[in-house]
Each structure stands twice: as C-alpha cells, then as structure tokens.
Design a protein around this nucleic acid. Structure first.
Length: 594
RNA sequence: GGGGUAGUAGCUCAGUUGGUUAGAGCGCCGGCCUGUCACGCCGGAGGCCGCGGGUUCGAGUCCCGUCUAUCCCGCCA
C-alpha cells in the first residue's frame, strides 16, 4: 500500500489534471456495463471514481468488489461534464479516472444497510453488535468528532483558567450512601474489594488539601444502577475543583467555560450570565428541578382559591398541608381519548390518584369535576389559568413536591403533544442555560426514618442557616448548585465543608451515620481536614450529556463510541462474560446460584 | 422489582374472521447495460414467523410463560 495524496473530501476543480492516489471504503458501485462508477469514502468525504471501458482489467475486478471493501485507487483528477456534475457532493464537480486499483481488503456483505435514511431504521441491537460498521456512517462518525472537539475546547479553556489536569484512581473503595457500586475483588487482599469510583469526589477534595488549588479531569465514573437513555454505567464527567472560592466564582468560571465550548463547537455566543432560580421556584413554576425553559406553560398555584372549597379532593389536600396546582396546556383541548388516558397513567405512575382536567370547547367548560366547583372558583380559574377556547387545564392536589412533579411531567407530555400538532416548537439550538440554587441540604427519608444528604454529605450549609442544623435540618439550605440546559441536568456541585468538626457533625449527628462507619469510610478525610484544608468547592458536569445536546442526539449511546445496552451489555464484545473457576479461586470468590 | 412498545427473509415491513402454497421493497447471486450518483432492465436463491408450552381438525394470527431490545417508574449521595 502506498500513501494517499488526498483524502476523499478534498478534490476540487482546481486539482484537475493532477495524478492522485486515494484510499478508502467502497460506498457504492454503479456498473453500467461499459463505464463503471465507484464512490470511494473515507472519514473526510466521498469521491467518485470512474473506470472507462478501455481499462478492462480494472472494471472486471471492480465489478466484483463488494461495498465496504477497502480500496486503493490511482488516477487522474478530471472535470466532470456540465450535465454530470453532482451539486449534492462537495467533490461533485470532479472525478478520478482510475489507472490502477488495488483491493486492500475484501468485505463481507454488511449485515445491515449503511446508507443514511435506511440505517436509522435498523434495530439498535444489531447496530451495536456491529458497532464498528455503524460508526462508519457519517452521522455517527461526526458525533465522535464533535465529542473530540468538545473535549479539546474544555481542556483549552480550563488550561487558560489555570487548572491542572490530574488523573485520580478508578479503583477506590466502597462508600456508604450514594449509587450502587461496581465491586472489584482484591487478589492481594483476600476478601477485600475495591469499588470503581462513582465520581472522584473525595480524591479531588484531597487535591485541594494538597494545595493544587485548581484541578480538572475528564473523569471516567461508574455506577451500577439501572440504565436510561441519559444514563450509562460508565460515563465521563468534566470534574473540577477550586480552592479559595465562593459560589459566584464558580458560576462565573462555568459560564466562561460553556461560552468557550459553544463558541468553538457551535460557533455561537452564549449570553452571560445564566439566569438563576431557586429550587422552590423551579418546582413551583415548572414542576421539575431541571426545567426546560424553551417554552412557557408554567404551573399555577391555586391554594388560596380552594382553601374553603366544597370539592373535597382539593380542600382535603390543602387541609393536610398539601397544595393544589394546575397547568394550562393551551390549544390542546382536541386531545384524543388515548392521549388523555396516557396522561392519566403518567400522573398515576407518579403517585396521583387521577388527573382532573377542564377542557374549553365550543365556548363550554367540559370537566368531570365541574359540578364540584362554585361560580367563584370557576371565575378564579378562568382568570388565573387564562383559560380560553381550545385550552385544557390539568390539576394536581396533594403533597407539594409530588403535585409539582406530576404537573411537571404533564407539562412536558403536553408539550410533546402540542409539538406533534405543530403548535409548539422546542428548538434544539435554543440554548436555555439555568442555574438552580438554594436546594435543601437534607431531605427526610420516611422509610429509613432519618435525614439523607440531598446532594452529598460534603456540601457546606449556607452560612446563615448553620444555626438551624440542630433544630430544623430540613430548613437548612446547602451551598449547592445545578447547571441545567433545556430540561437536562448537565451537572451539579457545591461549596464543600472544609472543617473537620463540621463534617463530623454532619456525618454523625445530622445524617446519623455510625461513628465507626464514619471512621472507617471517611476517617482519612476528616484527618486531612485537620491539616489545614482550604475553603473549596467545585462541580461535575456530565460530559456525555453535554455532547448529546450539542450533537442533538436523543441518547447517550449515540455519543459514546462503544455504549452499553439497558442491561449493561456490550453487544459487540459480549461483555460481561463468564470467567473460569480458576479466576474466581484466585480472587477467593465462589459462585452461588442466581 | 414494576408498566408500556417491538420481535415474520440479511435489513425494513405487510400478513384480513384462526384456514391449507407466508408476501413486498431493499440487499444478495446470475445475466444485460458507455454517464450514473437511491443507476436501470431481466432472472434466481433466500423463512425455527424470537423461544417454550397450551387451546383447536387446523396457530404467524388466540391464551400462558419466557428471552431480547427499547422507553418510563423505582433506583441514580
């Protein structure tokens, strides 16, 4: 094989007459009996190779070459005749007249078509099994390239801000609370296990104690939880930590980082700073802690309107300390029975007893709950929800968080239905960044009967709430922040606790962890804090999610080179797989019945 | 652990009320074709109807179970 002179997306009319050598894959063969065409493809593009009847040895060979075979072509660049120019190809004004071709490797017939438009419809399991073929497709390769460019932009921007890229161990130890972990048995320490890091949280705090001051890493993280379209068992975070900062410093840094990435990768200027909303406000207005603010349809609070209501479902919810809210899906009164049923089931799956609604059709209100509403209540609803012809409003009544969440989901489902009707559009290139702040530090877990850290136990309380820590832990706000973009939680972080006494108090007194467990799991961390830990804080952003948004792809699998299925399998390599008895014995493990 | 959707030719799909020989397009194989770029034309091969059980004279079709993929709930400090 000789070296190529050009790649397949490169030749232009100004190259006419040049002797060139191309290498690539056969994208398609069009054999006309006399003249024969081959589209040769490499990662940069497509070039048409033409073989004229005079070159009999070549066309006889080529006619039998199969698509996806690897080919080397030598020939001359010629201008195409006016009528044969292909305006849809960037190389469409020229072609390479072959003088010599060499088959570098014959391909079997691919198990699925690789052409755009056909490949998308092929079952994903088949495409994952032959991932190396699916990645040959332009669209998928470009996702990998976009990921690379994003990573480079992140590195450049953070380097310019004075950050050091430091690699931290993947083999860590098991930590109480948090995600389920992948365990790795230790051969040298019989019976003991490593755990793969859920995130480098503790290591990066140690780097702050070590005086690194500004650390970042494109960190691989592992969580043995059930998968979703936006969750892979191994994933990548833009993980960073800074010393001597407050929340404002962090917000500014991340805003500059996002602006740099968008400038380089998207070619757009983001408007800074990003808006900030409290957790309470986004829940009240959008029913989600990661709201999509590309459209309105905000939730409306109705507590005062129904406090004295004769409608027991609403009045009862309020009497027991809950809330009544509604959302007006403007223009959706024409929803079908099936769509309505689907919405009801969505609400029920989130804990609702049902889904009350009011439709406005032909100037009339239609609703199963109409008969329970007083004239005053109807007037109040009409005004607050701005109900007009063609609208449908949905209601939720019950505990505050649950009701907000239910309507938040209804809001998103309604948006999808309106989008189908062409009445609403969520532009994937309409970038609505948002900081969500003022999260509660603790949440009470009714099942376990104790408080759990809302984010993680290293989050520092807001200074002025410190005194509430003993009396009213649920009222303490954490110095935690989430970065949200178009309904996707890009990541979160916090200012950390850096004093050993406060950290110990949170572990033992507030979270109620056993002192021995605290010593075993976090002893080294508390010890480190006693040697002059600087005030510090940081954030971790989901790199895969970031790339998926930039690439406008629905699933993380589309922006990961070799993704895992919902059962955590790599269908191409067939991982995980069984191991031998001998391997288990070396690790002091024994298989038990499943 | 739970709910939804899908599984018929290599791929994408159709398959009526349960009815005897399961179809189409693309791909594949063979032939023809000197300007195509989704080339075209002619011919051909190709099926464990996901798997297991049941109902029935008869099952791709109905019932039960199961497997796989996917979306969601739980879970994801």
């Amino acid at each position: 094989m000789e070296k190529r002179t050009h790649h397949c997306g490169e030749l232009r009319p100004t190259d006419a007459g040049a002797k060139v050598r191309l290498v690539g894959w056969i994208d398609s063969v069009r054999d006309h009996g006399g003249v024969l065409f081959v589209d040769l493809r490499d990662r940069e593009g497509l070039t048409q190779v033409v073989v004229h009847p005079g070159e009999r040895s070549i066309d006889e060979a080529l006619a039998h070459f199969k698509p996806e075979s690897v080919l080397e072509v030598e020939g001359e660049v010629v201008l195409r005749e006016e009528s044969t120019i292909n305006p849809r190809m960037v190389t469409g004004e020229v072609e390479v007249a072959a003088r010599r071709v060499e088959l570098l490797n014959q391909s079997r017939t691919p198990p699925f078509p690789l052409e755009e438009g056909k490949a998308e419809k092929v079952g994903e399991d088949l495409r994952l099994r032959y991932r190396y073929l699916d990645l040959r497709r332009r669209r998928n390769f470009e996702a990998l390239r976009l990921r690379h460019r994003t990573a480079q932009a992140v590195r450049r921007a953070l380097d310019a801000e004075g950050f050091l890229e430091v690699e931290t161990p993947v083999l860590f130890k098991s930590t109480p609370e948090g995600a389920r972990e992948f365990l790795v048995p230790s051969r040298l320490n019989p019976g003991d296990c490593y755990a793969l890091v859920q995130s480098p949280q503790q290591y990066k705090q140690m780097l702050m104690v070590a005086g690194v001051e500004r650390y970042f890493q494109l960190a691989r993280c592992f969580r043995d939880e059930d998968l979703r379209a936006d969750r892979q068992p191994e994933f990548t975070q833009i993980d960073l930590e800074m010393s001597f900062i407050d929340r404002e410093d962090l917000y500014g840094l991340i805003e500059r980082l996002m602006a740099a990435v968008w400038r380089e990768v998207e070619g757009t200027e983001l408007s800074l700073p990003f808006p900030r909303l409290s957790y309470a406000e986004v829940m009240n207005r959008y029913g989600s802690d990661k709201p999509d603010r590309r459209f309105g349809m905000e939730l409306v609070g109705l507590d005062d309107l129904f406090a004295e209501s004769a409608f027991k479902v609403f009045a009862g919810a309020l009497a027991s300390g809950g809330t009544v809210k509604a959302v007006n899906a403007q223009g959706l009164a024409d929803l079908t029975q099936g769509e309505l049923k689907h919405l009801e089931e969505t609400a029920k799956s989130l804990g609702a007893k049902g889904l009350a609604y009011i439709k406005v059709e032909n100037g009339e209100w239609r609703s199963p709950i109409l008969k329970f509403l007083s004239a005053g209540e109807r007037a109040g609803l009409e005004e607050r929800l701005a109900l007009k012809e063609g609208d449908v409003a949905f209601f939720a009544a019950g505990d505050w968080e649950g009701s907000c969440t239910i309507l938040g989901r209804i809001r998103l489902e309604a948006a999808t239905l309106l989008e189908k009707r062409g009445q609403l559009h969520r532009d994937p290139r309409d970038w609505r960044f948002l900081w969500v702040v003022d999260f509660p530090l603790m949440l009470f877990d009714a099942e376990e009967g104790r408080y759990l850290a809302a984010h993680h136990p290293f989050t520092a309380p807001v200074e002025e709430d410190l005194e509430l820590l003993d009396r009213e832990p649920q009222a303490v706000r954490g110095q935690h922040y989430d970065l949200v973009l178009n309904g996707v939680e890009l990541g979160g972080g916090s200012i950390r606790i850096h004093r050993a006494d406060l950290q110990k108090k949170v572990f033992e007194e507030v979270l109620g962890l056993d002192p021995q467990v605290v010593e075993d799991r976090f002893g080294y961390l508390l010890e480190a804090f006693s040697y002059g830990a600087p005030p510090h804080g940081g954030i971790a952003l989901g790199f895969d999610r970031l790339v998926a948004l930039l690439a406008d792809r629905a699933s993380l699998r589309d922006v990961v080179a070799f993704p895992k299925t919902q059962k955590g399998q790599d269908l191409m390599a067939a991982a995980p797989g069984s191991v031998t008895e001998r391997q288990l014995r070396d690790l002091y493990l024994q298989a038990v019945e499943a």
